[in-house]
Amino acid sequence: MALQCERWIVSAIDPEIAGQLASDLPREDFVRIVRTFEDDLGRLARILETSVANGDEDGYRRAAHSLAGAAAAVGARRLEQVARIAMDHRNPADPRALALQVRREASEALAELAALAEHPPGAD
């Protein structure tokens, strides 16, 4: 099923949010945030997948909620939107497909954040 995530968002991260963070914070702080985000993604994605496998709807939505919050905090907009779809009781999207998409969006967001950490705005 075509997910309702807005694919027109070309970049996985919102440069206004992530870029602002990268320029507001010392590089080591921004790197630490990216690492924390990576840990969160790994942990929450696993909980999401386990909850899908176990039919644990409550666990699934709670993990999706946390994912949405973490993604929003670093400007990972596409990931945030997928997570919000997963949070929504009324959305008929297949949880397994959503879990897969979470993995995909997470990877892309992490890659772009890592690049941003390497080359923060104004670094050149």
Partner: peptide, 13 residues
């Protein structure tokens, strides 16, 4: 805050 990323962002700022 129970999500580490959000806590980390707020803390760093």
């Amino acid at each position: 805050e129970d999500t580490p990323t959000q806590a980390e962002v707020a803390g760093a700022l």
